[in-house]
């Protein structure tokens, strides 16, 4: 028996459900469904307290603090990372290790760039006087965007762990599914930013 046949992961029959789908993928989609409700709650809280913020003596106007230029760059970074992620999945399915490595690490790099940009934004806002406790706007804004940034950080760790696990045989059914479900999470994080970008920064 060759070394490759001993170490290459085999078919994913053990992961199939009675519904005929992979149970890990089903679990990730269900998790994404619950995360949708989680972020909807945070966004709803932001909007519910927006008029209350305006009535309070510690009112801080979002338009005076939020920087549309920086946020547009961050939105573009996350959208670009969704492209590199889906290209990494495509490369993994066809067994192209070189491009799989390139695109997956590019996704990780873009994720780190997003986190760096958000850290810069938070630091800038803090020095402008907007903090977690300075006003209702500060509280709801930092909780919402902070949780999103945390999800991006978790996504980067997830992608790196998947990369080191599957890089030898990215095209095996088991490993391609690992890449796919990590990608689903990553695209969801991008999806949340699509909503935050328009609802918090543009409207």
């Amino acid at each position: 028996m060759s070394e490759s046949s001993m170490t290459r992961p085999h078919a994913t029959a053990a992961h199939h459900t009675s519904l005929g789908v992979d149970n890990r993928k089903l679990g990730v989609w269900a998790f994404i469904g619950s995360e949708t409700l989680f972020f909807a709650t945070l966004i709803t809280t932001y909007f519910v307290f927006a008029p209350v913020n305006r009535m309070r003596p510690d009112f801080q106007d979002p338009r005076e603090f939020l920087d549309i230029e920086l946020t547009t760059v961050l939105a573009s970074i996350l959208l670009a990372s969704s492209l590199t992620m889906v290209l990494a999945l495509s490369a993994s399915r066809r067994g192209d290790r070189r491009w799989f490595t390139t695109w997956l690490l590019a996704t990780v790099g873009l994720g780190l760039a997003f986190i760096g940009g958000q850290a810069y934004e938070f630091n800038h806002l803090y020095h402008e006087g907007l903090t977690l406790s300075s006003s209702l706007f500060g509280t709801t804004f930092f909780v919402l965007t902070g949780f999103h940034g945390t999800h991006v950080a978790i996504g980067v760790i997830w992608l790196l762990s998947v990369f080191f696990k599957v890089r030898a045989y990215p095209d095996s059914p088991e490993n391609a599914m690992d890449v796919e479900i990590a990608g689903l999470y990553w695209h969801f994080v991008d999806l949340v930013w699509v909503a935050i970008f328009v609802l918090v920064y543009l409207i």
């Binding site: 789908v21 989609w29 949708t36 409700l37």
Partner: peptide, 17 residues
């Protein structure tokens, strides 16, 4: 089933908002 477990919470979340 994937559409179901994502779109139902999404519809609920939109209704909530």
């Amino acid at each position: 089933i994937f559409k179901f477990v994502f779109l139902v919470p999404l519809a609920f979340a939109t209704t909530l908002l």
